[in-house]
């Protein structure tokens, strides 16, 4: 038996919107730790890892570890039927081939349940070791989204370079080139608007902008984004989900042949 009650139901709606274009089908894993997902896109270039810790739920009952295969497009269709202020409860019985999403309006005057069919998915779980990164950039998530969107109108790839000068995002395309440099900026009053660059050594890596733009669909989940870079490692783009966990996107770099 599984019953997870999330008062801030809009978080789950936002999570789905940020992953459904990257991954079609995925297993949601439920354990004492929390509600999690790890899935790769079909070309094995990008991976999403989600964790919503059990403590973040108002009620969290998971009698035994359960993996539920869901079509994310269908799940998104159902969650779109929940109001932004609704409380969402996820329910499943052991051995059942369905999951139920229950939506309660804040005033309890409307209660809806949507039952969705589960599916068997051959999951390819990857072991992601802890790594030391050459550089970690934290910046406003909206600023990062804006940069990715702007650069994708010029080129297909972005070179992210971190030096002691700052972090540079560069692209080139048929019509020309673009470079955007963000310098460390901790002087602003609001910490979520600051840009913080931790650099152990300079690093420069190339990534497909198509994926970066897809990751930025998680922007509504967090004011800040953290970009961790190391040469010859996938970049990690992380959005912290307040008091609950995170959504992390891993993207393999492009290399010169």
């Amino acid at each position: 038996m599984l019953e997870l009650r999330l008062v801030q139901g809009s978080l789950l709606k936002k999570v789905l919107e940020s992953v459904k274009d990257l991954v079609t089908d995925a297993n949601f894993d439920c354990s004492a730790t929390g509600f999690s997902l790890q899935a790769m896109d079909s070309s094995h270039v990008a991976l999403v890892a989600l964790l919503l810790r059990s403590e973040g739920f108002e009620h969290y009952r998971c009698d035994r570890n359960l993996s539920m295969g869901m079509n994310l497009n269908n799940m998104s269709k159902m969650l779109k039927c929940a109001g932004n202020d609704d409380i969402i409860t996820i329910k499943a019985d052991d051995g059942s081939d369905t999951v139920t999403f229950m939506f309660e309006s804040p005033t309890q005057d409307k209660i809806a349940d949507f039952e969705m069919k589960l599916m068997d998915i051959d999951s390819e779980h990857l072991g992601i070791p802890e790594a030391e990164y050459h550089a970690i950039v934290r910046m406003p998530s909206a600023e990062f989204a804006r940069i990715c969107k702007d650069l994708s109108s010029i080129g297909d790839t972005v070179v992210i370079s971190v030096t002691k000068e700052g972090v540079k995002f560069s692209t080139r395309g048929d019509i020309g080139t673009a470079n955007i440099v963000c310098r460390q900026n901790t002087s602003v009053d609001k910490p979520e608007e600051s840009t913080i660059i931790e650099m152990n050594e300079p690093v420069s890596l190339t990534f497909a902008l198509r994926y970066m733009n897809s990751f930025t669909k998680a922007t509504p989940l967090a004011n800040s984004v953290t970009i961790s870079l190391s040469s010859e490692l996938p970049v990690v783009v992380e959005y912290k989900i307040a008091e609950m966990g995170y959504i992390r996107f891993y993207l393999a770099p492009k290399i010169e042949d």
């Binding site: 270039v45 996938p234 393999a252």
Partner: peptide, 14 residues
Amino acid sequence: MQRQKSLLSFFEKS
């Protein structure tokens, strides 16, 4: 010419 690396060349299946 640039080549897209796969995640599978960095991480192992568990």
